[in-house]
Computed example of a mutant assay.
Amino acid sequence: MQKLFLILIFIVSISTILSAQIVNGDTLTVDGKKILKVWGTHQERGYAYGYLMGSEIKEIAEDYIIGYVFGNNSFLYENFRSYILEHFEIEEKYHTETEAMVSGIVESGVDIYSSVLGRELDAFDILCANCIVDMSGMNMYAPNISFGCSSLSSWGESTLVDPNLFGSLVITRNMDWTPNETLLYNHLLLVNFPSEEDEVPWLSFTFPGMIGALSAINQNGIAAFMNMGNMDTANYEENLHPIFLSIRNGIEMNDYDNNSINDQFDVYQAVEDALHLSGSIIHCVNEESGIVVECNNIMGTVYRDEDDNTIIPLNNLAATNHFRELYSPVYCYRYVNISDSLNANPNISV
């Protein structure tokens, strides 16, 4: 009888091992900064993301999204979630990815119950977190929402004197969201190696739980950095798409616009193909030059390049939080400061 019992335990143990999903991911910490590498399908990458970063994902959801942005007000948060559910169209691949992420979190042993919401966190909560910047265009109140960001790209004559650059393009990124303690201690470099034939490897400077592209670079040398715009009035509220996921489509999908050229216009096309709720300014570059994509709900999507500069010298592009092509430019002290610095000393170095 004891022998039979041991055999049954062995069979159950083997069955459990065989049924457990392989974790297609690995983590590394360099100088206190977390790096997560995932590979495989959207499902496999999502599962690995959740399994390896479950505690951090829950911390961002509870302490930053629900706790800080929504002030631990479940009514406000659930209204936000309901709005996303009713007005946004999100591709099935991202639903698959976030569902697998939650499965990974649970199987890693992390409790996903939220005492504020009175329920377990689910895949759609993860998708809602990836719509956090879109809420700038919503007719709702969140007590602690503050986004910004700015960027400068320089190339050619601007970087020629630096021996490390010698004319190559360099981009300077200022990530000035609200200095929330949970965010400050949870920066993440996410490296994706997709197995889908129409996708390319890419990396994202982000926070745990975020699957979209806020600051991202792909294998083809295309980079995109999203800044908030200053005009968020919305007239069209159906079939909306999260701006982070639109940018990801342009970065992750190989040659998004199908013109046999991998360049920054792949990101432009991905943004133009979707309707967005809030105003965004996306700084897109390849290894030689850049464009700044501007979009909002009413005016659609346009872009500008160095030929549209007025006070910024050529071989440079600056993007802050004020539209300069979608609308007539208004005064922006940061844009003026960048211009003054470049005109005083046009040489950019690392």
Rank of each mutant, 00 (worst) to 15 (best):
S15V: 05
I22T: 15
I22V: 12
V23N: 09
D26R: 11
L28M: 13
K33V: 14
L36M: 10
V38C: 00
T41M: 02
Q43P: 02
G50Q: 04
L52W: 00
E56P: 04
E62M: 14
D63R: 01
I65A: 14
V69L: 14
V69Q: 14
N73T: 03
L76Y: 09
E78K: 06
E86R: 09
H87Q: 07
I90Q: 00
E91T: 00
E92I: 11
K93Q: 13
Y94E: 04
E99T: 15
V106S: 07
V106T: 12
G109N: 04
D111K: 04
S115Q: 13
S115W: 10
V116F: 07
V116P: 06
L117K: 01
L117R: 04
G118D: 02
A123E: 13
I126N: 04
C128Y: 01
V133P: 12
D134A: 00
G137P: 12
N139L: 10
M140S: 13
M140Y: 06
I145W: 11
I145S: 10
S150L: 02
S151V: 06
S151N: 09
G156Y: 14
T159F: 12
L160P: 01
D162R: 05
R173A: 07
N174A: 04
W177G: 10
T178N: 01
E181W: 06
T182Q: 01
L183A: 12
L184S: 11
L184R: 15
H187T: 02
S195Y: 10
E196M: 09
E199G: 02
F205L: 15
F205K: 10
M210E: 05
A213M: 08
S215P: 00
A216W: 00
A223E: 08
A223G: 07
N227T: 13
M228Q: 03
E237A: 08
L240P: 11
L245D: 11
E252L: 14
M253D: 13
Y256D: 08
Y256P: 07
N258L: 12
I261L: 15
D263L: 05
D266T: 15
D266M: 14
V267A: 08
Q269S: 15
E272Y: 15
A274C: 12
A274W: 08
H276C: 00
L277E: 05
G279M: 06
S280V: 14
E287S: 10
E287W: 14
E294F: 03
C295I: 06
N296S: 04
G300L: 03
V302S: 11
N309T: 07
I311T: 03
I312C: 10
N316A: 01
N321Y: 06
H322L: 06
F323P: 01
P329G: 02
P329N: 03
C332F: 09
S339N: 14
S341T: 14
N345C: 07
N347W: 13
V350H: 07
